Lab assay of single mutants.
Amino acid sequence: ATNIVGKVKWYNSTKNAGFIEQDNGGKDVFVHKSAVDAAGLHSLEEGQDVIFDLEEKQGKAYAVNLRIK
């Protein structure tokens, strides 16, 4: 899926990971530091509006192509 709108639920820069809550009510999506880095960002803030694509690896959904809304 592409161009999904959501809000950062939480992001821990020590653990280099967090979750994004989908505005469409879907399951929360894992976001890794690699996606944050690829977006040219240093970190994510709780409640921040984002747009992202979903990629599945080994049955788990990940946020990729992250951008700030």
Rank of each mutant, 00 (worst) to 15 (best):
G47R: 05
A35E: 09
D28V: 10
K57I: 11
H32T: 09
I68D: 05
V8K: 00
L66Y: 00
F19Q: 07
V50L: 11
G25A: 06
L44C: 03
A63W: 01
I51A: 04
K60E: 07
E45D: 10
L66R: 00
L44M: 05
V36I: 11
V50F: 03
N16V: 04
N24W: 09
D53Q: 04
G25F: 07
I4T: 04
K57N: 10
F19G: 03
A17T: 10
N12C: 11
A39Y: 02
V36D: 01
I68Y: 07
Q22E: 04
E21G: 11
T2W: 12
D37Q: 14
E21F: 10
E21K: 15
E21W: 10
V5H: 15
K33G: 11
V8C: 03
E55L: 13
K69R: 12
V36T: 03
G59A: 04
L54V: 13
A35C: 05
N65I: 02
G6T: 01
Q22G: 07
G47T: 03
A61C: 13
E45Q: 13
N16G: 15
D23L: 15
K7E: 01
Q48E: 08
D49M: 15
G59P: 01
T14P: 06
K9Q: 03
G18L: 05
V8R: 00
A17Y: 15
N24C: 11
A17P: 01
Q22Y: 15
W10N: 04
N12V: 06
V31L: 07
D37K: 13
F52N: 00
V29G: 01
E55K: 11
G18W: 09
A61D: 06
F19C: 12
A39T: 05
G59K: 05
E45Y: 15
V64P: 01
K9Y: 04
D28M: 12
V64S: 06
Y62S: 07
V50D: 00
G26E: 09
V64Y: 06
W10Q: 03
V5A: 13
D49K: 14
N24F: 09
G18P: 01
V29Y: 06
I51V: 11
D28P: 10
S43Y: 12
I68P: 08
V64A: 06
Q22P: 15
K60M: 11
V36F: 05
K60V: 10
D37E: 14
G6V: 02
G40F: 06
I51E: 07
D53T: 04
K27G: 10
H42Y: 12
F52W: 01
L54Q: 04
A61G: 08
T14F: 14
K9V: 05
N3L: 05
G59D: 06
V50M: 05
H32Q: 08
D23M: 15
L66V: 08
G26K: 10
N12L: 08
Y62V: 06
I20T: 00
G26Y: 08
K60L: 11
T2R: 13
N65R: 08
S13I: 12
R67F: 04
S13C: 13
N16E: 11
Y62P: 01
V29D: 00
A39V: 05
W10K: 04
D53M: 03
H42S: 12
E46K: 15
G26C: 09
V5Q: 13
W10I: 05
A35S: 09
K9G: 02
G47F: 04
V31K: 00
I51Q: 05
F30S: 03
R67H: 06
Y62H: 08
N24A: 10
T2V: 13
K15A: 10
E45I: 14
A17S: 14
V8Q: 00
W10H: 05
L44N: 00
G25M: 07
Q48R: 06
D49L: 15
A17H: 15
Y11H: 02
A61V: 15
V29S: 02
V5D: 08
K15R: 12
L66W: 00
E56Q: 11
K27T: 09
V50H: 00
D23S: 15
S13D: 10
R67Q: 08
G6W: 02
V29F: 05
N12H: 08
E45N: 11
T14C: 14
V36R: 02
G6L: 02
L66D: 01
D53L: 02
I4L: 15
T14Q: 13
K27D: 10
D53A: 03
E56C: 14
V64H: 04
A61F: 15
N65C: 05
V31E: 00
Q48M: 14
Q48K: 05
S34Q: 09
L66I: 13
L66P: 01
G59I: 02
V5R: 14
L44Q: 00
G25P: 06
V29L: 04
N3W: 06
D23I: 15
V5N: 13
S34C: 11
T14W: 13
E55C: 14
L41D: 01
G40T: 04
I51K: 04
N12E: 06
G47Q: 04
L44H: 01
N3I: 03
G59Y: 04
V31Y: 03
Q22I: 13
H32N: 10
E21H: 10
S43Q: 11
V5G: 11
A17L: 14
S34W: 11
I51W: 08
D28S: 08
K33R: 11
S34I: 08
S13T: 12
V31G: 01
W10A: 04
I68C: 07
F19A: 07
I20L: 10
E21T: 15
D37N: 13
V5L: 13
Q48P: 01
D49P: 14
D23N: 14
L54F: 05
Q48L: 10
N16W: 10
A35Q: 10
F19M: 12
S43P: 09
E56Y: 15
G47I: 02
A1L: 12
E45M: 13
K27Y: 09
V36H: 01
I51G: 02
N12M: 08
S43K: 12
K7T: 08
D49F: 15
K27R: 12
G18C: 04
G47V: 02
D23R: 15
H32G: 10
K57L: 09
N12A: 07
K57S: 11
D37Y: 14
V36W: 04
A39P: 01
G47W: 04
T14L: 13
K69V: 14
G40H: 08
D49W: 15
H42V: 13
K69C: 13
K27A: 12
Q58T: 08
E55P: 01
D28F: 10
Y11G: 01
H42P: 12
A35M: 06
I20E: 01
G18R: 01
K33M: 06
E21Q: 14
V8E: 00
V29H: 03
T14A: 13
V50Y: 03
K33W: 10
G18D: 00
A1R: 14
G59M: 04
H32K: 07
D49C: 15
H42A: 13
F30A: 05
K69G: 11
V36P: 00
L66M: 03
I4E: 03
V50S: 00
K27I: 10
Q58S: 12
F19V: 12
A1W: 12
G26T: 07
K60H: 10
I51C: 08
H42K: 13
L54D: 00
K7C: 06
H42F: 12
K33Y: 08
A63L: 04
S43F: 12
N16S: 11
A61N: 10
H42N: 12
G59Q: 05
A1C: 13
I51R: 04
Q48W: 14
K33L: 06
D28W: 14
A61L: 14
N12Q: 07
G25S: 08
E56P: 03
E46G: 11
G25L: 07
F52A: 02
G25W: 06
N65S: 04
A35P: 01
H32V: 06
I68G: 04
L54M: 11
I4G: 04
W10L: 04
T14K: 14
V64C: 06
N16C: 13
A1T: 13
F19P: 00
G26M: 09
N24M: 10
A1P: 10
W10C: 10
N24G: 12
Y11A: 03
V64Q: 04
K60G: 06
A39L: 07
I51T: 08
T2P: 06
G6N: 01
Y11E: 01
G6R: 00
Q22H: 08
L44F: 05
L54W: 05
D53S: 03
L66C: 02
G47K: 05
Y11L: 10
E55F: 14
I68A: 07
K57C: 13
V36A: 03
T14E: 12
E56I: 15
L54H: 02
Y62W: 13
D53C: 04
V31M: 04
K57V: 11
D49G: 14
L41S: 03
S34A: 09
A61I: 15
A61T: 14
L41V: 08
T2L: 12
L54C: 09
I51H: 04
N65E: 03
D53F: 03
N16L: 09
A35Y: 04
L44G: 00
A35F: 04
V29W: 04
E55T: 09
E45C: 14
G40P: 02
F52V: 02
Q48I: 09
K60Q: 09
W10E: 03
K33A: 09
A17N: 09
V50P: 00
E56F: 15
A38Y: 06
I4W: 06
F52Y: 06
E55I: 14
G47S: 05
A35V: 08
S13K: 14
G47L: 03
E45W: 15
Y11I: 07
D37H: 14
N16K: 15
R67K: 09
S34M: 10
L66K: 00
L44I: 08
A61H: 12
K9S: 03
G40A: 05
G59T: 04
L44P: 01
I51P: 00
S13W: 10
D49Q: 14
L41E: 04
W10G: 03
K57R: 13
D37R: 14
